[in-house]
Each structure stands twice: as C-alpha cells, then as structure tokens.
C-alpha cells in the first residue's frame, strides 16, 4: 500500500519541534492526510478463477480414490471412469447412443425454437394474434410439460415422435415467453421514430422489432437449450430402448456406476458446449451492447 506511510512533513514537524514552532503544528493540523477508504468490493478477479473449484474437486476425488477411502462400487476412481469411457467409445456403443440422443434433442429443440419465435412474433405484432396465442401459451405453461408424458404416449405411441414433441414443448415455452416479453417491451419512442422515418411494415419488423427483441430472445434461447437437455434425460431414462439415458438406466440395473458417470460427463459436455455456443452467438449478434456494459 502506497498510502500507508504518512508524509515526511507531518512526522518530522511533530518530532523535531513539538512546542517551539507553534505555527508549523497548526499548518500540519490544517492539512490532515487523506486516508484511503477500506475497500468493500472483492477486488480484482484472479486469473482462470472459475476453474479453481472444479480442479480442486477432481484432485480430492483422485486422492481419495488412490488412498482407498472411496467404495469403488459407489464412486469409481476418475481413471476407471476414463477407461470405461474409452472402452464404450471404441466398441461403438457410446457413439450410437450419443448420436441417438443428439438427434432427439436437436429435432425437438429446432421445432420448439421455430414454434416459440413464430408464436411470439404473431402475438407481439398483432392484437388478434395476442388474443389467440398469449393466453393459450400461458395456460400451457402452467402445466408441467413432463406431466404430459402419459397422454403423449397414448396419442403418439412410445416412439421417437412423442419424445421430440415433449422436448419441443419444453423448449418453445421459455423461447416464446422471453421473446414475447421483449417484443412487448420495445420502446414506443422507437415505434414513433419508425413512423416519422416512413418505414414500411416489413422494414419496421426487420430494423426495429427484431433487433429490439433479440436480447430477450437470447435469454429464452439459453433457457430452451437447458430445457432440451433436461427433457432428454427424463425421457430417455423412463421411456427409451436406446440413447444415453437408456445406457445409464441399464448400468443402474447392473450396478455399473462407472458407466453412469460416463453418461453424466457426456451430458455435462453437451450442456457446457451448447451454452457456450449460444453465448458466443449472443456476443457476436449483440455486440452493440458490449459497449454499454464495459
């Protein structure tokens, strides 16, 4: 700390001439030294600080396994999980299951995203659309989507269609809600500006409505991505004969905790990669906002 040391003048005057030189002391008292306030914010961020916690957990896990403090049947060692993962990958089981799962999540997500955006635009841009759509979606949202599984199995059978349909519903709700809220929240002053500048309806949507609603859309998109993985896990663990969740469900029956952990790691990678991808696109598309926050 550079502020810790008092200035030489103050110290010297106090010691050298305590009583003889009264005006000097007065001068010292008149100009008290500014003490820097105690900082209440946590200060500068450490480099790569977000990795510290996970790496520490991994290290603890490895040390405890090596020391034999963990039951290998309940929590296998990290290297066992890695070995199992490599084995499952090389014999092709894991790749097939991953591809099946990705196809389900991807199709459901794509349909849900399209439906969410289309409905939000229809409800946000016309009063008739709002009257028809908004209340219906709000009602749909009140029912937990996973509770629809029995009904959808009856309607669509237990095949791929019903799984994709459930994931699409899980995705479309947050996409719709956030995009619609963003559309409704577009500043009316910008609408007025568009009228003054003589924009056509199409130009208005493309140049003001869509860019104005994008921040909200991205919030919905990230929630939708998370929702699609959540729906996938539930569907595959209770109603599937293939896919990643089925692999884990089988492993539970045979007591293979290492296989379950491999499945969890893959799910984690899915979630992390998709969220990072959305964030990357968001940063690109909303680059105008960066200047605001920085």
């Amino acid at each position: 700390m550079t502020t810790g040391a008092p200035p030489a003048v103050g110290g010297a005057a106090d010691i050298d001439a305590p009583d003889l030189n009264a005006p000097d002391i007065a001068a010292v008292e008149e100009t008290p030294q500014v003490r820097r306030r105690r900082r209440l914010s946590p200060g500068k961020r450490l480099p790569a600080s977000r990795l510290v916690g996970p790496v520490l957990v991994l290290a603890l896990w490895a040390v405890a396994s090596a020391a034999g403090r963990l039951d290998p049947a309940a929590v296998p060692a990290p290297w066992t999980v890695l070995e199992t993962g490599v084995r499952l990958w090389t014999d092709g089981t894991l790749t097939t299951d991953i591809l099946t799962s990705l196809r389900r999540a991807g199709s459901g997500f794509a349909i849900g995203l399209t439906a969410g955006v289309a409905l939000a635009l229809a409800a946000g841009l016309s009063r008739a659309g709002e009257a028809l759509i908004d209340g219906t979606v709000q009602l749909n949202r009140a029912i937990p989507t996973l509770g629809l599984i029995p009904l959808f199995i009856l309607w669509l059978g237990i095949g791929e269609t019903f799984k994709i349909a459930i994931i699409a519903i899980v995705v479309y709700i947050p996409v719709y809600l956030n995009t619609h809220a963003a559309l409704a929240g577009i500043d009316s002053r910008f609408v007025e500006l568009a009228e003054v500048q003589g924009l056509s309806g199409f130009q208005f949507v493309r140049q003001i409505v869509v860019p104005g609603a994008l921040p909200g859309f991205f919030v919905g998109l990230r929630l939708g991505v998370t929702g699609s993985w959540l729906g996938l896990v539930v569907l595959e663990q209770i109603n599937a004969t293939n896919g990643l969740g089925y692999l884990m469900f089988q492993a539970q029956n045979y007591g293979q905790s290492d296989v379950i952990l491999v499945g969890l790691v893959v799910y984690g990678v899915f979630g992390l990669v998709s969220d990072s991808a959305v964030r990357l696109v968001e940063r690109r598309v909303l680059s105008w906002r960066r200047t605001l926050s920085s």
Partner: peptide
C-alpha cells in the same frame, strides 16, 4: 417530406451512427 427531431436523439442503439442516419 417532413422530418422530426425529438428531445431525445432517439438513435437505435443496435445500429451504428451511419446506419441510424440511413434509417428509412
């Protein structure tokens, strides 16, 4: 042809200055 200048500049935050001038 009528133009309006408002009390606030009313520039669209997601368009650069030139694109804002070109609006419409």
């Amino acid at each position: 042809t009528v133009s309006v200048v408002f009390q606030d500049s009313r520039l669209l935050p997601w368009r650069r200055v030139l694109a804002n001038v070109l609006l419409g």
